[in-house]
Design a protein around this nucleic acid. Structure first.
Length: 330
DNA sequence: CCGACTACCTGCCCGC
DNA sequence: TGCGGGCAGGTAGTCG
């Protein structure tokens, strides 16, 4: 599941039990996940204190007091569960991203178990084992093969129409593949690429070069897409936090997949554009209640935003499902 | 450099 | 109830 918003949600859940705590015990139950664990992985972690838990793209990064960094990637099916110890920071249970370990969980895929000095037990569970963990030497992140080629952090100020245009100029590759390329933008995955293109009303089949003009400056499409990417991710991060509680009560699991999407997974259903106050419309300003209200008001008065009426289709690009509305995504 | 493709792994869901 | 096929949120490696 984990694309950037899910990883960020997990980070916010883990931070209160990991930051400031020591690894009292580290159980590594197999020699590898997607890659072999580094030599003496458990021994190098044990006794170390987590100074901060950060995120880069889809990686969780625990900075250790040794100067090393523990990098964790969730692959396709990786998840963390937490059993809270008495010493966890007050309020930890209320924070988004928390998910509670259940005795019935599929323990045979619990590959790594951290017991923290505050008594909390953190389990990494990953049925498909596409995830991985590694330790990075002090100061070694920029040169590390996993990180050196990573593209721009999409929620950072560096994620500009200009950046998109400069990377997209002259490329025949479809927008879908361009946005999935972690060397350009790091953190989008199959779902949020579909959602961002939908929000920007751009076809996933369009060549990436559509994001730039002849001179290489950002096109209107490029400006729209840059904004759509950030809006989609911000909304998803916000939803991950706010919706978690209900999800947890429902089945005790992680709160990131109940989020409903505007286009992903909606094959054969009516396009939502123009049918709902927040039905995937490209908003002029994200996260601004006042603007959103004004926008809805304008629509009800002028009737400018009629329902699209199209049908969501699924096509395969690079072996992966793309969902889009051919009627409004051009 | 670009772009297409394969491989890695398990679980789940569907149709027969 | 079992079995085969297709599908799943990711990405590293290979090849033309």
């Amino acid at each position: 599941m984990p694309e950037l918003p899910e990883v960020e949600t997990v980070r916010r859940g883990l931070a209160p039990v990991m930051e400031g705590a020591r690894f009292a015990k580290v159980e590594q139950r197999r020699a590898d996940l997607r890659f072999p664990f580094p030599a003496n992985f458990a021994r190098r972690l044990k006794g170390r204190t987590v100074e901060s838990l950060g995120r880069r793209a889809k990686y969780l990064l625990a900075c250790l007091d040794s100067g090393e960094m523990l990098a964790m990637h969730l692959g396709m099916s990786g998840r963390f569960t937490i059993e809270h110890g008495a010493g966890a920071k007050a309020g930890a249970r209320e924070l988004p991203g928390e998910f509670v370990h259940e005795a019935s969980a599929d323990a045979k895929h619990d590959h790594v178990v951290f017991t923290m000095s505050n008594g909390s037990v953190i389990r990494y569970n990953d049925a498909r084992r596409f995830g991985y963990m590694t330790l990075i030497e002090p100061g070694g992140m920029d040169a590390h093969p996993l990180f050196k080629g990573l593209g721009v952090e999409p929620l950072s100020p560096a994620m500009t129409p200009r950046l998109l245009a400069s990377r997209a100029a002259g490329r025949a590759q479809p927008l879908k593949a361009f946005l999935l390329d972690q060397r350009v933008i790091a953190g989008l995955g199959n779902i949020y690429v579909c959602e961002a293109l939908y929000r920007a009303a751009l076809s996933p089949l369009r060549p990436a070069s559509a994001l730039a003009t002849q001179s290489g400056a950002p096109s209107a499409a490029g400006r729209l897409l840059a904004q759509a990417i950030q809006a989609v991710l911000r909304d998803a991060v916000a939803a991950g936090g706010s919706s978690l509680r209900d999800y947890r009560q429902a089945d005790g699991s992680l709160g990131y997949f109940q989020h409903t999407f505007c286009v992903y997974g909606r094959e054969g259903q009516l396009c939502l554009r123009g049918t709902h106050p927040s039905g995937g419309e490209m908003r002029p300003q994200t996260g601004d209640i006042g603007t959103r209200r004004a926008h809805a008001h304008e629509r009800s008065e002028g009737g400018a935003a009629r329902a699209c009426g199209g049908m969501v289709e699924r096509v395969i690009q690079n072996g992966r499902s793309t969902f889009y509305c051919p009627t409004c995504q051009k």
